[in-house]
Amino acid sequence: MNQPQLKNLLDDLDSAKAASDGLSRLVVTRLAKQRIPYKVMLGTLELNGKVVSPHFWVEANDCVIDYRARQHLDNASAPHGVVPLEGLKAHYEGQEVVIDPLPDYLFNLLKH
């Protein structure tokens, strides 16, 4: 699945009232249902000297999936959504963590 297809699959989750950890769980759930391999990351996000830590994001198909970087950094040039790894202006550093997909009832509750 390429970047535009991932964006199309996930962009509606941006409206969820969830921080980076909760939104990462929603993303993981959607990716798992489509059987798309992913890695959940926990670490720091840095852009222009401003650092956010702890911060969660998801990596899949050579893209960073992060719908909360712009909000946390309060910077319009921060990554938002599904961004190809080679196009990143921010620096992500972290380690892979395990976040299980949500059951359907909880996913549907949290995505609104």
Rank of each mutant, 00 (worst) to 15 (best):
V51C: 11
A18M: 04
V98G: 14
L10C: 10
L23T: 05
I65G: 08
I99S: 15
T44G: 15
F107P: 10
F56I: 00
A18W: 01
P84D: 05
R35E: 03
T44L: 01
L106F: 06
L45A: 09
R25V: 01
R35Y: 09
V28Y: 03
S15D: 13
D100R: 09
C63H: 06
Q5N: 10
V64I: 11
Y105G: 04
R30H: 11
P84I: 02
Y38G: 08
E59W: 03
G94D: 06
Q5M: 11
L73I: 04
A60I: 04
D66S: 11
S15Q: 05
Y38K: 01
D74A: 15
K50Q: 02
Q5A: 13
D11Y: 04
R35H: 06
W57C: 07
L110C: 10
H72C: 08
Y105N: 03
A19P: 04
D104I: 00
Q95C: 11
P37A: 11
F107L: 11
F56L: 04
E96G: 15
V64N: 02
N75F: 10
G94N: 09
L109E: 02
V83N: 10
D21I: 10
D74I: 12
E59I: 12
P101C: 10
Q3R: 01
P37K: 06
H55M: 05
N75K: 11
N48H: 05
P54R: 14
N8T: 03
H112L: 13
V27S: 11
L106D: 04
I99K: 15
L26S: 09
T44F: 07
Y38E: 03
L88M: 12
D12G: 10
V52M: 06
R30Y: 13
K33G: 15
V82A: 05
E93T: 13
V64A: 08
P103C: 11
A32H: 08
V58F: 01
P101M: 00
L85G: 12
L6V: 02
A18Y: 01
A16V: 14
Q3D: 01
A90H: 03
L47G: 09
L23F: 13
H91N: 07
Y38P: 13
S15I: 09
Q71Y: 04
H80I: 07
L9S: 13
G87D: 12
V98M: 12
R35M: 00
K89A: 14
A60L: 00
L42C: 12
R25C: 07
A90I: 07
V52W: 02
P4A: 03
L13Y: 14
L110K: 11
K33C: 11
G43L: 07
V27C: 13
D14K: 01
Y38C: 06
V52A: 12
C63W: 03
K50I: 01
H80K: 10
L45S: 06
L102M: 13
L73S: 10
N48G: 12
L109W: 14
Q5D: 14
A76R: 02
A60Q: 03
D74C: 14
K33R: 09
V52K: 14
V27F: 02
Q95A: 14
S77A: 13
V58Q: 00
V83L: 04
D104F: 12
D66H: 10
E46W: 02
K7I: 02
